[in-house]
Amino acid sequence: MSRAPGIIFGFLAIVFLVLILWSRRDDTAVVMTEPELTEEGPVDLVAGPAVADPVPAAPDPAVTPAPAPAAPDAAAAPAAVAAAETPPPADPGPATVVAGAVEAPREVARGPGLGAPATAEEIARLNISIPPDGRNLPPGRGTSAEGALVFAQQCVACHGSRGAGGDGMVTLTGGLGTLTTERPVKTVSSFWPHATTLFDYIRRAMPLNAPQSLTDDQVYAVVAYLLSVDDIIPIGTVLDQTTLPLVEMPNRDGFVNWWPEPAAARN
């Protein structure tokens, strides 16, 4: 009888120990399954650091990860919602994987992959950029004679007669031969390296009070007019998709590329 309390105590101790182990096994199980859960979606990547500083000379105290502001539909757990609603991003493609794994050790965060496909038609309707090779120039045509009329109606008030400026106006013509003098005058005629840039800029931004109001024919025409003022093209030249990129601007070779910065310029 005298051993009964010891047996009871021992039994209780064993039960207690088992309970502790059981509860710890649960904890361990939760911890161990977490990475498996996150691998189902981009959850871990959402919470992780975005892009590591490629050359961390010293810790940057001003760069701190900021939690993504919760969208109204994802207020409680935006990452979890993103994972639930969004399938994993489509195959990122071999180029991305190879670049990340082999070429650059840069740590790149991945977003939730919420970009929607943009169609070629969609892009074509909004892409107004014209590089020097003339790619993306629209159909249409114009001559300096037609352009003189457009200029008189739309441009002369801010650029003066024949684009000569004056009275605080923006000068577009003249200035040829001045770039090495004590008073360099930078104009379209004297300074701009590419005629395509003139077309691009007028089409997207001019006239200032009604941008993108000119037809493509009018833009070709007013470019032809401006280029004829200083005889960069002969009067009567038809500018279009084919001929505009062939125009040789007087200062086409006048630019020195500074990116990346020449080593000799570094101190």
């Binding site: 959402v46 489509a90 496909p117 892009i123």
Partner: peptide, 27 residues
């Protein structure tokens, strides 16, 4: 916001979509 040109997948982003991306702050 459109991203296109020399890419494998031209994309368009709405503000709602962008708000769910990881963000960071820098001075």
């Amino acid at each position: 916001l459109y991203i296109h040109g020399l890419v494998d997948r031209p994309l368009v982003f709405s503000m709602d979509a962008l708000m769910r991306y990881p963000m960071e702050s820098m001075i």
